[in-house]
Design a protein around this nucleic acid. Structure first.
Lengths: 246, 246
DNA sequence: CGACAATTTGATCTGTCTCAACTATGGTGG
DNA sequence: CCACCATAGTTGAGACAGATCAAATTGTCG
């Protein structure tokens, strides 16, 4: 059982799940100055429209990006876990076009854009890796457009579960069968464009089909093949180097 | 009435709609070697899963990114016009996670990744501008997730029209009231997650409300304020430097 | 224990889909 | 020049997935 990774190690685990780093890249990343902060459940970390001068690295907990459309309905755009940098794009887009919120109590580390820019200029490996991180986020948004646009309720929810499972597993945050996904049904609904009532029924359907089982915040994958099948899930869009932790 | 811009000029118009370039940036962009090609209507330019070594610049016509989900249903992810580089992300994600297709006869220019990389390394202004282009694409995908996830049919369609209008106008491809948008109703449905029948009814509703009028492929904005209102449209997510052409 | 959040269930309603037929439109070849 | 055909658009009727509303149940935590 490995010790809990340090914040810098979290970042390196995340980056190495998608890109190859050499010793000097890793050394450079370890010099990044981090400003740690704890944030309570359901608190906004960044609000849409704000000007941003730091990007944040998640150390623990679950975070989501979201927008609010006319009528106050919320659409969750993505989920993020320890090691992710959910607003890295603020490096080149200074006004936030969406909000970032803590879904659980979270620990984040703020990193100034300036420090990241200096490191990227000095270190081509880090430069390429972070751009790749940004582009993979973009790829995930594309998949989500297809998910909410053209899949039915059971496919949508199964797909989100598959994605979270694969991504968390690559980050060392899930076992071969279990993941801790502390989302409410209403949050799953906001991510999939469904009402919370219908999410409830659809989750029941997934359990009835013995694809998953749920014990509090812990979800178990009972039949990974069948779950991917019903989700129409293909992990290619995540552009991971490997699907299991190193 | 200005002459039709050259391919390199198209690219510079597009980039200057989102970023500031200096003389050396513009000069550098003009040296990019372009391999021109004409592509027929409804032909794929890049197919999902392919390995890509060139990015393409659209010279004329309309192009879309799309995915096909289980059951063969298509989801259009984005529309692209003259000056756009719709698969710039292949620079760092070599296997395409979606397809790119010509919706009209199009002229494209292929640019080798190597040439773009050399230019970006030599020219920080171009580097930042192209990354910004990538991140704005990403922002547009986020808005589309919210559009198909949480808006109703009339809002979705009005929103897509608003976006195309503003983006085409910034590229000098639309007048103050008219845009040439040669999309079939079925393509609009694939972009908004609606059936073509319902698109038809909803477009009729938009015309009945005197928000738009349609004459073949030419759409006129009759009441821009009211159209934005019904679309819940705010152009901030496009991160444009200005909403009208230079 | 009490209070509040989250989940579960039932009943009803509605937006959108599907299927099918019909009309315009434009292109092609005889 | 017109008959023909393919494509896109339009309209109607019925079905269904998922929304909404309402209420009961089950956590969960101070």
């Amino acid at each position: 059982m490995p010790a809990i990774p340090s914040p810098h190690e979290r970042l390196i685990i995340q980056i190495e799940s998608i890109a190859v780093l050499n010793d000097s890249d890793r050394a450079g990343l370890k010099t990044l100055p981090l400003r740690l902060k704890s944030i309570g459940e359901n608190r906004d970390i960044v609000r849409e429209g704000a000007s941003v001068t730091d990007s944040c690295l998640i150390i623990s907990g679950v975070v989501c990006c979201y927008k609010v459309v006319a009528g106050g309905r919320r659409q969750i755009l993505s989920f993020h876990f320890a090691g992710d940098m959910p607003d890295l794009q603020s490096l080149h887009l200074n006004t936030a076009d969406h909000s970032l919120a803590a879904l659980t109590p979270v620990q984040v580390a703020f990193i100034s854009h300036e420090a990241i820019r200096v490191l990227m200029r000095a270190n081509p490996g880090v430069n390429d890796a972070l751009i790749r991180h940004l582009l993979i986020d973009s790829s995930i948004f594309r998949e989500w457009v297809a998910n909410v646009g053209r899949r039915n309720a059971i496919e949508r929810i199964a797909h989100v579960i598959c994605e979270c499972f694969v991504r968390m597993r690559a980050l060392g945050l899930a076992t071969a069968t279990d993941l801790e996904l502390p989302l409410t049904q209403s949050e799953i609904g906001d991510a999939t464009g469904l009402s919370n009532v219908h999410v409830n029924r659809t989750l029941k359907e997934l359990r009835r089909k013995r694809l998953i089982s749920t014990n509090g915040k812990i979800h178990s994958i009972l039949d990974w093949e069948a779950l991917q099948e019903t989700a129409d899930f293909d992990p290619a869009y995540l552009h991971l180097r490997r699907l299991t932790p190193a």
